[in-house]
């Protein structure tokens, strides 16, 4: 049994599983699958083959220092609620900024544009600082009503596709505590927006990262945007 418009998607299952569809195509195919048992079945049929691909590679042993480096961070975080840390002694790989993301050393963000404040007394519009290296075309602003106790709205433009299975997520920073806020996606034109219903009074900043669909409890990378309140 096929859903409406099936012919358009008939050959998409393989490309979908391999992560080879463009973002908008993937979204369209996922929507189509909801009403097309044929495509759903085909994806489930082919999935074991796609899942086997990572197992085909030559097996290598990672260096022992990698295990030590990972476990240092994990033990330091313990089973307490994960929270940002100011420093990490063993980090010496080239991905340093991305890795340091979860530690979110606030204020260490470099290469950011200049923030500015506009708007009347009741509504403030604050321009976000955007990491030009990772989001070269993006701009965003946060509209805050009054003291922010009624929340705020973030609107962004020029957002690139965050990658397969990934979304943008907002965060609220208070001191060194970062709490998760809703996720959002960019439409075809690269615009996206998210409402932050939480009381923002006393918050220091609103941050944005790219996370896996569904959102994260703690940031998985250095923020790509930051709005200082």
């Amino acid at each position: 049994m096929t859903g409406p418009d099936h012919a358009r998607f008939a050959d998409d299952a393989g490309a979908y599983l391999l992560g080879a569809l463009a973002d908008d195509e993937r979204a369209a195919f996922e929507l189509h699958m909801e009403s097309c048992p044929d495509c759903r079945n085909q994806v489930e049929q082919l999935r074991p083959a796609a899942d086997a691909l990572p197992r085909s590679v030559e097996q290598m042993n990672p260096p022992d220092r990698l295990r030590a480096s990972i476990m240092d961070v994990v033990r330091a975080e313990g089973d307490a609620a994960p929270r940002p840390r100011r420093e990490r002694p063993r980090l010496r790989f080239s991905l340093r900024p991305a890795l340091a993301g979860a530690m979110l050393v606030l204020g260490l963000l470099v290469g950011f544009g200049v923030a500015q404040l506009t708007g009347g007394e009741d509504e403030r519009t604050i321009t976000a600082k955007v990491d030009d290296a990772r989001l070269p075309t993006a701009s965003a602003e946060l509209r805050v009503e009054g003291d922010g106790d009624d929340g705020a709205a973030l609107t962004a433009e020029g957002l690139p596709d965050p990658g397969p299975g990934r979304v943008y997520q907002a965060w609220i920073a208070r001191g060194d505590k970062i709490s998760p806020a809703p996720t959002f996606v960019a439409d075809r034109d690269g615009s996206g927006s998210v409402a932050l219903p939480e009381d923002l009074s006393g918050a220091d900043a609103v941050l944005v990262t790219r996370e896996r669909r569904g959102g994260a409890r703690v940031p998985g990378e250095m923020p790509v945007m930051r709005v200082d309140l």
């Binding site: 975080e77 979860a102 896996r212």
Partner: peptide, 19 residues
Amino acid sequence: TAEDITQEAFLSIWRSRTR
């Protein structure tokens, strides 16, 4: 780079373990 990616992935797994 492979070490970086593995480290990033495992820390992300630890931090999003409930998912």
